[in-house]
Simulated assay, not measured.
Amino acid sequence: MSADVGDRITLHANAVDTPDRTGTIVGILGTDGPPYRVRFDNGDETILTPGPDATIAAPSVSERVEQVAGKAGEKASELAGEARATAEDVTGKAARAVADTASRIAERFQK
């Protein structure tokens, strides 16, 4: 049973009073398939090799767009943090340069 990252997996329960578990495949650990890293809808994450009681379905176009948008948002946040750190570093260097220049000018006036 092969799947891609982002596919939905449902583990059908073997007992009447046990609900099915549904999640998203977030990683493929085998070379051509299982085992998969699965994040279930309740937030739990596990590694599993699906058995005959599992079904895998590709997400709809809108679900795939949501996944891609979520990843893009995460990357944008990461890049914004890096840009913020760089800007703070550059601002600090500029402030030190201004302070050094002001100090040298003040020393000249004192002479």
Score class of each variant (00 low, 15 high):
65 V>R: 04
69 A>T: 02
37 R>K: 11
39 R>L: 06
9 I>R: 04
81 G>N: 01
9 I>Y: 10
95 A>V: 03
83 A>T: 02
103 S>Q: 14
4 D>L: 11
7 D>K: 08
94 A>P: 08
30 G>S: 10
9 I>N: 04
102 A>F: 07
95 A>S: 05
98 V>P: 00
107 E>S: 08
51 G>N: 09
92 G>N: 13
7 D>H: 15
91 T>S: 14
76 A>T: 03
88 E>I: 06
33 G>Y: 09
17 D>Y: 08
2 S>G: 10
8 R>N: 12
71 K>A: 10
47 I>S: 03
84 R>D: 00
100 D>Y: 07
22 T>V: 15
19 P>T: 01
29 L>I: 02
51 G>D: 11
78 E>K: 01
58 A>C: 07
17 D>Q: 09
86 T>G: 09
82 E>V: 01
13 A>F: 10
41 D>W: 01
44 D>R: 04
41 D>Q: 05
2 S>K: 13
59 P>Q: 00
93 K>E: 11
27 G>K: 12
24 T>D: 06
31 T>L: 09
86 T>S: 11
20 D>K: 13
29 L>A: 05
15 A>P: 00
57 A>G: 13
12 H>A: 07
58 A>Y: 07
57 A>S: 15
84 R>M: 01
20 D>L: 11
101 T>E: 15
100 D>M: 08
28 I>R: 15
4 D>A: 13
94 A>H: 09
93 K>R: 12
9 I>G: 04
10 T>P: 02
33 G>S: 10
97 A>I: 05
88 E>V: 06
103 S>K: 15
67 Q>N: 09
51 G>P: 03
5 V>D: 12
15 A>W: 03
90 V>G: 06
57 A>F: 12
67 Q>F: 07
60 S>G: 07
101 T>M: 12
1 M>S: 06
28 I>H: 14
33 G>M: 11
56 I>D: 03
58 A>F: 06
101 T>G: 08
32 D>Q: 08
89 D>R: 08
19 P>A: 07
75 K>G: 00
70 G>L: 03
58 A>I: 05
108 R>F: 08
79 L>H: 07
4 D>M: 11
45 E>I: 03
80 A>T: 01
50 P>F: 02
85 A>K: 04
56 I>E: 04
57 A>M: 14
60 S>A: 02
1 M>D: 06
53 D>K: 01
34 P>M: 10
84 R>T: 01
88 E>M: 10
61 V>Y: 12
56 I>A: 04
65 V>C: 02
98 V>G: 09
34 P>S: 15
16 V>M: 13
45 E>A: 06
37 R>T: 08
43 G>R: 10
48 L>H: 04
89 D>L: 06
83 A>L: 03
86 T>C: 09
72 A>Q: 03
111 K>H: 10
57 A>I: 13
4 D>C: 11
68 V>C: 00
92 G>K: 08
88 E>K: 13
100 D>W: 08
104 R>H: 07
110 Q>I: 05
85 A>L: 02
41 D>F: 02
2 S>A: 08
105 I>F: 12
71 K>N: 09
96 R>D: 14
53 D>Q: 03
86 T>K: 14
19 P>Y: 07
98 V>Y: 14
95 A>R: 05
12 H>I: 01
21 R>A: 15
103 S>N: 15
5 V>Y: 14
19 P>H: 05
76 A>N: 05
21 R>E: 15
35 P>T: 14
89 D>F: 05
69 A>K: 05
